[in-house]
Amino acid sequence: MHPSTHPSAASAGPGGIEANGLVKRYGDVVALAGLDLVVPPGTVLGLLGPNGAGKTTAVSILTTLIAPDAGTAVVAGADVVADPRAVRARIGLSGQYAAVDEHLTGFENLDMIGRLYRLGRRRAAARGRELLERFSLTDAADRPVKTYSGGMRRRLDLAAALVAEPPVLVLDEPTTGLDPRSRNELWDVIRELVRRGSTLLLTTQYMEEAEQLADDIVVIDHGREIARGTADELKAMVGGERMEISLHTDADLDTARRVVARFCHGEPHIDGRTVAAPISGGAQTLTEALRALDSAGVGLLDVGLRRPTLDDVFLVLTGHVAEDDAAAASNAGPTPDRRSDESMEVAV
């Protein structure tokens, strides 16, 4: 279950994040049940899980907003409990619940944050202008943030996290609630940050986002890690690629099953007029199988090569679908085991 580096095996170094055995309880509810995380400097760790999995609690501990009940965490070389101020000086936090002020303009927000980072009046203003330029917000710089679109607001929020050029960035669900186009724009911005060498901890409930941005992924559910690895490693855990063929008539089923069995591992699975089977060799194997089916006279309605997605991974690991769970959580309202994440989200 642990294809990549385990925390005990490596140290995160001065510019990274290392957390060991983080526990956080809210009354009887266990939000984190002993979470380990390592983000080596200059890499991106995706923390993936549904609402209430403990993502926001983990982020809150790593950014010194709350103290853990047990466990330790060192961020950018400083201990979050012993020296929270040093941690705050070296991180940038952006996300669903650390907000910009909607009544201030984009510039005023960044200028204020620059001053609070003690850049001094002139440097704070210059840095604000520079970031607005870089995030294509110059035209909107002097408009109150409440006139911004969702995507612009998130970009400004991200810019706010970058004011002091921190070595470590923590992005908590940076694209939740954005339309696909804004999401893609924001992904480009985040990729650019990573290219410049930032260490990044990213939480998300979107499989695609973790796959797009993260070097390593930790999947959590109910406050504990259930898997970790690269996107490919995680996919390998649910098995490799499968071929799927749909037939015109039931009459061909038996022939098709016999032909497909020659190319796959194990027994083909039959569901209605669809024959599915795990294969290796990808398109090559598929082509050969199709030729054989054709010579056997099997009429095909549809053919496909299916690779597992992170959604499949999540389903296999947790027994439920991540996004369904998120939807159920928002419908059900704040149930006790989701309290930590849920109440944070009110603050968006």
Binding site: T63, Q96, A347
Partner: peptide, 15 residues
């Protein structure tokens, strides 16, 4: 400020 998340931002700053 608390409802909107501005306080969280302030609390993550070295002020």
């Amino acid at each position: 400020d608390m409802q909107k998340g501005v306080i969280n931002r302030f609390r993550s700053l070295p002020i």
